[in-house]
């Protein structure tokens, strides 16, 4: 997995690429500390999953970890762009109900 962080009017957009499974644990944590470092309190963080090709249940767990960790910094956290297998997994687990809406 790799990532880019962009500043957008609503806050930060984090673009994730590749696979999201337990193997990507370390990369994901790096992404999270980079996003936390750039984050301004109150801004939204949008995790853009458009270029994530595969996610499993451990990957869903990582997204929740990101949500909990960023919410401690009073960020709202939204998911965007999921397609294919990733979108099916998010819909199956009703992740839309667990994250904020993208601004």
């Amino acid at each position: 997995m790799d990532f880019d962080i962009e500043t957008i009017p609503a806050g930060l957009r984090v673009i994730l690429r590749g696979r999201l499974t337990f193997t990507e644990n370390e990369d994901f944590r790096r992404m999270l500390s980079a996003a936390s470092a750039e984050h301004v309190a109150g801004d939204q963080v949008t995790l853009d999953l458009g270029e994530v090709a595969f996610i499993d249940s451990a990957g869903l767990g990582l997204l929740l970890h990101a949500r909990d960790s960023l919410r401690l910094r009073s960020a709202s956290v939204a998911l965007a762009g999921a397609a294919g297998q990733v979108e099916r997994m998010l819909v199956l687990a009703r992740f839309g109900d667990l994250f904020d809406r993208a601004a």
């Binding site: 929740l64 199956l92 109900d97 667990l98």
Partner: peptide, 10 residues
């Protein structure tokens, strides 16, 4: 249809 929030998350 098997949609639903996994146990332990909500």
């Amino acid at each position: 249809d098997a949609q639903g929030v996994p146990l332990g998350l909500s």
